[in-house]
Nucleic acid binder design. Structure first.
Lengths: 362, 362
DNA sequence: TTGTAAGCGTTATCAT
DNA sequence: ATGATAACGCTTACAA
């Protein structure tokens, strides 16, 4: 006996298409699925079926396909919430993840923790309480509770970490090398009293690595390292004190463009300018040039390609589950030479970068 | 005849749970679905079933549920790509959308256009070529091609526009009122030669509305309006020329905090300061205070609540498809008083905002 | 070359 | 209160 379940107006099914085209539903499935070789449907028949499908507005029901195929064609993209996420979940990551997933026929599902938890909010995202994903990309979510980690593990989902330094199943940046390159660049420019400054507290691996790379190069050149942490709650007094001294640094290596922009405020507050009075370097290539006195020398992070690599990695894990571990992929950042570290740079023509728009604004 | 289809290791099914608990699968479905009232399963039995489910790590197969329920429990969140999206897809929107969707048991699927289209990339996102969503939220995607619009319409999906001014099915901000409030605030502070400046070209409705609100109030006070568009490709010459004149504005109403930050650069370049030499106001409350000489007077946008409202609206459309149009929801922005528009403000104590972190950084 | 039918995991109905 | 069973739309093995 047939019972009718009609909650929403259903879109056309393959059965409807088959009826319209006067063929069996199995042929429709084969043709629409591009498996014509297997059955050898005539050109004409294919056209007829495609026409009927287009006319009826047929669209594959992803749930039915998922059930049958035992694959959801869904990847989760887990990102931190606003307050935790400083400079981690950038639009370029999302773009790389999305484009690559889409190219392989996968959807991307947003995974987050509730930003405003309420009493009746389950702290475990629903997506882990049901079967909905084939794989998961975690973009540096620092506050993963042990409970949450357990749930993720229990789900048996292939997981790839983006922006986290792990031996396997991760995609990250070689910030040690990046900091080396930047420090060497500053030395080549003739700077000697180079200080490293950051706003961050250093939870993320990259912070320690940047300091290490900087320190290493300075040591190799027998130059003293000088770390200048700048707690934003102190309103820049650390920075001001440092800049006021007679032996102030001749260049500041900022841990991020973000921090360089912050630093600029205090440089200007003292009536100083860069690169005339001191060199200023950033990191991350966040595109803040519009707000800066001089285009910033910085390190660019191939975020799009990293997102892409993360998806490729997780797809590999999905399709070859017998290999649950794959070696991590480490990307090299690239030096972007601005005028902010060029002695006498302010007297040169400012190079226009008209088409760049701050990526971080999005 | 039974054939075996095993691509991935399946997680436990209700059948497995039923076997483990020694009951029928239908009871398991009822108990796990919270429909115990209908069947009257004993407390004890429920406990047994829940225990078995937990032990086996049972998770509902969302595709099977979707197929049976004829609902995917998936919402699409359509956002523009990096280059197009200036200040539109903010993390707070995502947070509001995600939290609200999650609270109602819905997942959020990322919908974008390919950022780096290739020859073999279909410009129509896959999600529109299959049945996968119950509804769609479009956060100001300016470059919707006619073809894409057709596809969205053809999909029959309930659509809600976020950040777009439409008569129905939209959630947006009353920027006319916001600009009025800001202009009146500036007048109250004693400013008279108030200019409105923007970097934007004005594609978005909010740009025109802000100018209109500003102009209206100025006209009401019989003061001349002064528009100062600043093409970033011109490297600030418009701004510099304006600020150099003897009758320069005594306050600048910037179309965004973003623009205010840009403006600061040229203020400092001329050796001027705010609020001493002129007042500076922003819009959007993007949290750039760390980078600014003075905390900025700005308008805050209730983005989280707007995301929430958009989800509530689209859920209404989903559950009551006989009502395909609902009135739009218009949010009022709120004035945030900083010191940047306070005459003599720089001599006051800078109010600490230690816990705020620029939301736009994410 | 085309048709037939099994079965994916769930929900919900119906008969016991 | 419980168990048996249909149905959702799709893919695919196999029969014709």
């Amino acid at each position: 006996m047939k019972r009718t379940i009609k909650i929403r107006k259903p879109s056309a099914t393959q059965d409807d298409v088959a009826t319209a085209a006067g063929v069996s539903q199995a042929v429709v499935s084969a043709v629409l699925g591009g498996r014509t070789g297997k059955i050898g449907a005539s050109e004409k028949l294919q056209k007829k079926i495609l026409a009927a499908a287009a006319k009826l507005g047929y669209r594959t029901d992803s749930s039915a396909r998922a059930m049958r195929m035992r694959r959801f064609y869904n990847l989760g993209y887990f990102t931190a919430n606003v307050s935790q996420a400083v400079e981690q979940d950038r639009p370029e990551f999302r773009a790389g993840v999305y484009d690559t997933a889409a190219a392989q026929g996968y959807q991307v599902t947003m995974v987050r923790l509730p930003s405003r938890p309420t009493a009746d909010t389950n702290p475990i995202p629903q997506v882990f309480r049901e079967s909905h994903l084939d794989g998961l990309i975690i973009n540096h979510v620092s506050l993963l509770t042990p409970e949450l980690e357990r749930v993720v593990t229990a789900s048996g989902l292939p997981v790839v970490y983006l922006n986290e330094k792990r031996k396997s199943n991760a995609v990250y940046v070689d910030d040690f090398a990046g900091a080396r390159i930047m420090t060497e660049h500053l030395l080549e420019q003739g700077y000697r009293r180079i200080a490293f400054s950051s706003t961050e507290s250093g939870e993320h691996y990259s912070h320690a690595d940047r300091i290490a790379g900087y320190s290493k190069v300075m040591a190799e050149h027998k130059l003293p390292t000088r770390l200048l942490p700048a707690d934003t709650r102190r309103c820049g007094v650390d920075i001001l004190d440092c800049l006021k001294t007679s032996k102030r640094p001749d260049a500041i290596f900022c841990s991020s463009d973000f921090h360089a922009l912050y630093f600029q405020r205090f440089i200007h507050q003292l009536g100083l300018h860069f690169p005339d009075d001191l060199g200023l370097a950033g990191y991350n290539d966040d595109g803040y040039d519009l707000f800066l006195e001089s285009p910033l020398t910085t390190m660019s992070i191939p975020r799009y390609d990293m997102g892409k690599a993360a998806v490729e990695m997780v797809l590999k894990l999905i399709t070859a589950p017998e290999q649950p571990k794959v070696p991590s992929v480490c990307f090299q950042p690239g030096l972007v030479t601005g005028l902010s570290t060029q002695r006498g740079g302010s007297h040169q023509q400012r190079p226009p970068r008209p088409d760049r728009w701050p990526g971080s604004i999005m």
